[in-house]
Amino acid sequence: MADKPRIKLPKEAAKGEVIQIKTLVSHVMESGQRKDAQGKTVPRKIINKFACEFNGKPVFSCALEPAISANPYIQFDAKVDEAGTFKFSWTDDDGTVITAEEKVALKA
């Protein structure tokens, strides 16, 4: 849980280039369907929202359901028109938000 999310994206991009971003965050994504050894249902605990912003503008987001695998991997694209910072956030059912940032420069 305390693991840093892993994010892979190019360090620099040409103006207007569409880059691919890969993200992976460690999380059990407990579906709320499983039962423990005593037959009690394990309460649901998942990341229900992922969002990515670039310089404050929304790029991509998704609402996640229990049908997302553990350690959710999300890959998407983003268009880079200027140098700036990508901000990523993963929101847990219990309200905690895991955040990360990555900078992208423009190719000279």
Binding site: F60, E65, P72, K79
Partner: peptide, 21 residues
């Protein structure tokens, strides 16, 4: 429900990969 992906013009491409159950 599995997921709802929301794109914007800043996404550049309407393309995504996830892993599902």
């Amino acid at each position: 429900g599995v997921a709802t992906l929301s794109f914007t013009p800043l996404s550049g491409k309407a393309e995504a990969s996830i892993r599902i159950r």
